[in-house]
Design a protein around this nucleic acid. Structure first.
Lengths: 117, 117
DNA sequence: GCATTATATACGTTTTTTCGTATATATGGT
DNA sequence: ACCATATATACGAAAAAACGTATATAATGC
């Protein structure tokens, strides 16, 4: 299923979802607890927004034991992927994205990524 | 005043505003009646969304007699201008943008632009 | 000054979206 | 089997946004 332009920008319109997407654009793949920690939000909220992003086909998920990892959908239209990449580049040092990344990097006991392919 | 990333994507999240921005990205500058005709929406609706875009500093206006012309704000951060340009390029042949442009081009009695500078 | 045209804005309503809490479900460890 | 941990989802409420109609305001032409 292809992602409509309307739905793409609607997905980006929520601050929480935008922060999630910016982190995924930087880090490639993250699990729910990492995103929850980095954004300092309650877990159901992160989960719900991830659900919306998944339903909209912006992200894909992968389960590894108890952990569920999310990444940007590699099959996004090229222009959408470019919009996300440009936004991530332009906002590297802009709040709240800067703090989100910092918090992620400083998180203790991040799930091991040994088997990430 | 600088446009926050959140506000930028919130502005793009509404289908009507997105169509307006796509037309402005293509045509440079358009007046309210041209946008109203191209989108086939009631005039107060177009005016209201233009008002929101102006307040958010995405567009600037210019009065010429009774007509008020709108254009993309040339002082947008470069990455935002690029996002709009890329979106417009990628969606040239996508509905409803294609029909919007067609309707604009076929509009009779468009306000003269002889004195546009 | 009045009529016409162009556009902005107020108003109350409707629609859409987001939210926190509670809880359901899945997996792993003992 | 039970407990702990990770995550998804239901629920009702709250918040935010969009809407159409009516009307206000501004400019132009006669």
């Amino acid at each position: 299923m292809t992602l409509a332009t309307d739905d793409f920008f609607k997905a980006l319109a929520d601050p929480t979802r935008l922060r999630v997407l910016m982190l995924l654009a930087h880090e490639g793949e993250l699990c729910v607890c990492e995103l929850t920690h980095a954004l300092a939000e309650i877990q159901p909220k992160i989960s719900r927004h991830l659900g919306l992003l998944r339903t909209a086909s912006l992200v894909l998920d992968r389960r590894q034991g108890q952990w569920i990892y999310y990444r940007l959908n590699p099959k996004l239209p090229a222009w959408m992927a470019q919009v996300l990449e440009q936004t991530a580049q332009a906002n590297r040092k802009v709040e709240p994205f800067l703090t989100d990344l910092r918090k992620l990097r400083s998180m203790a006991n991040r799930p091991d990524k040994a088997c990430c392919a």
